[in-house]
């Protein structure tokens, strides 16, 4: 089981405040890993450093055996990492087709037929095939989230980082989403930041819990579910996630 992504001593502080502290993290290939933790635990800071939106204060990131710590985001995407935004960030004035085409184009280049085929496939997989010609900004919030995921798929990444993908989705859409992610497991590795515990429990092979910027626990969903330390962390901050 080879490790696709590894961090060693990864830290980031904002004007003295430690958002992420000395995180050692290993992600094996073709696994679904969930990253959970109370609000403000440093999850988004952590994945922002993985994809290159934020430079780390110290530590290293290795992707497929290559040190990518100093690479800018576009280069990391070029190596096969993909990231979908927590706050929906689609091209609002462009059509769904164009949005996904932009995601596919970097890999497929000027081959229009291949791009079109890729776009159709990605949109079909998230259930937006009939919306291809719609302008992305006119879609409902849930549909924009799905479009965001389609843009991730169309990149055919070797590692797909999904930042709270199910936020704002309806129950039926969440069910479809689970099926989609299961099917993807054969093709890619997935790192999932998720608040919805049913999604975590059903999908993840392993779960990593962050608290105050440090890894609090790591294990199978069942182990994490039973862990007192995790429960304490959630209850201690009094957030609603614990009840899920």
């Amino acid at each position: 089981m080879s490790v696709i992504l590894q961090t060693r001593g990864l830290s980031r502080s904002f004007s003295g405040l430690r958002a992420v502290h000395e995180v050692d993290f290993d992600l094996p290939q073709h696994k679904i890993r969930a990253l959970i933790g109370p609000n403000g635990a440093g999850k988004t800071t952590f994945v922002s450093m993985l994809i290159g939106r934020l430079p780390p204060s110290s530590g290293s990131i290795t992707f497929e055996g290559r040190d990518v710590t100093a690479l800018p985001a576009p280069k990391r995407v070029g190596l096969g990492m993909a990231y979908t935004f927590q706050i929906t960030s689609v091209f609002g004035k462009l059509t769904c087709h164009e949005n996904v085409a932009l995601a596919a184009m970097r890999r497929l280049g000027g081959d229009t037929a291949a791009v079109d085929a890729e776009v159709r496939e990605a949109l079909t997989r998230v259930g937006l095939a009939d919306r291809a010609a719609d302008v992305a900004g006119d879609l409902s919030y849930g549909h924009q989230r799905l479009l965001e995921i389609a843009m991730g798929l169309a990149q055919r990444p070797r590692l797909l980082i999904l930042d709270e993908p199910t936020q704002g989705l309806a129950e039926s859409e969440i069910a479809d989403f689970k099926a989609l992610i299961r099917a993807l497991k054969a093709e890619t590795t997935i790192l999932l930041i998720e608040h919805n515990m049913s999604v975590v429990m059903e999908l993840a092979d392993r779960v990593t819990v962050l608290n105050f910027g440090e890894v609090l626990a790591e294990g199978t969903p069942e182990e994490i579910h039973a862990s007192r330390a995790v429960q304490a962390a959630y209850l201690g901050t009094g957030t609603e996630e614990a009840s899920c």
């Binding site: 939106r53 576009p74 070029g78 462009l94 932009l102 970097r106």
Partner: peptide, 21 residues
């Protein structure tokens, strides 16, 4: 040209699709 438009509309998103802004 399509990447030009992508940068105009949302530079950060375009960068995270792998385009060097």
């Amino acid at each position: 040209g399509r990447v030009f438009v992508a940068l105009r509309e949302n530079e950060e998103r375009a960068s995270l699709l792998g385009y060097d802004a």
